[in-house]
Design a protein around this nucleic acid. Structure first.
Length: 195
DNA sequence: GTCGAGATTATCT
DNA sequence: GATAATCTCGACC
């Protein structure tokens, strides 16, 4: 599996589609991801170089990169590329296929099954991933990644949710499985107004 | 369904 | 002190 992940994020991203992430009793089939290409990517946390937050992204592939954003939310990534090069695939959405009652209990809002893991922060909550799971090994740790045996069909398009300058959504680095109800219908990123 | 805006805090400057 | 790889709610179509 490590050989499959030891490549650029835009190549790894389609492979993760259809994969299953398992944490305890809850399992989610990934239906939407985004590629982050490290220091050459203006939308990536690694764009300004290594720091405490993105250190895991520079580490070896096959590990979990979590980060906190907007003061309330956590997002999860799969690290790819060899140690020393920052690159990761953001898990944006998925379908809860096991432990649905447990996942629903964590999500106080949106009890509908299609909404349980529709969005990066929701996915993390449904799975029970925490910020201190950062750096966990996805083959041996609490959070497991199971790649599919065959490549799922997928579509590619502009990234969403990246609020950086210069239109970082111009790169077609968002991948999803067509026809999945759990793929987020979210609008493109809007610049945040200050209060 | 789409659109606008506020919430809330770790991390970085 | 400013920023942010988001979510939720309310208003409108």
């Amino acid at each position: 599996m490590l050989e499959l992940l030891n490549r650029p994020a835009i190549e790894v991203a389609p492979l993760v589609l259809g994969a299953v992430v398992r944490v305890g009793e809850v399992a989610v089939r990934i239906t939407e991801v985004e590629a982050y290409m490290g220091e050459e990517d203006p939308g990536s946390h690694a764009f300004r170089g290594p720091g405490k937050r993105n250190a895991v992204m520079y580490g070896p592939p096959g590990h979990l990169y979590t980060y906190f954003t907007y003061g309330m939310h956590t997002c999860a990534n799969v690290v790819c590329m060899p140690e020393g090069i920052a690159s990761a695939v953001l898990l944006r959405a998925g379908e809860v296929i096991e432990g649905q009652s447990v996942a629903a209990k964590r999500r106080v809002t949106s009890q509908k099954s299609a909404d349980l893991a529709m969005g990066p922060a929701r996915l993390v909550v449904a799975l029970g991933i925490r910020l201190d799971d950062a750096g966990a090994n996805l083959q041996t740790g609490r959070v497991r990644l199971e790649l599919p045996e065959s490549q799922s069909p997928f579509s590619a398009g502009p990234r969403t949710g990246v609020a950086g300058e210069g239109g970082t959504a111009e790169y077609p680095w968002r991948f999803w499985i067509p026809g999945e109800p759990s793929v987020s219908p979210y609008r493109a990123a809007v610049k945040r107004k200050r209060r």
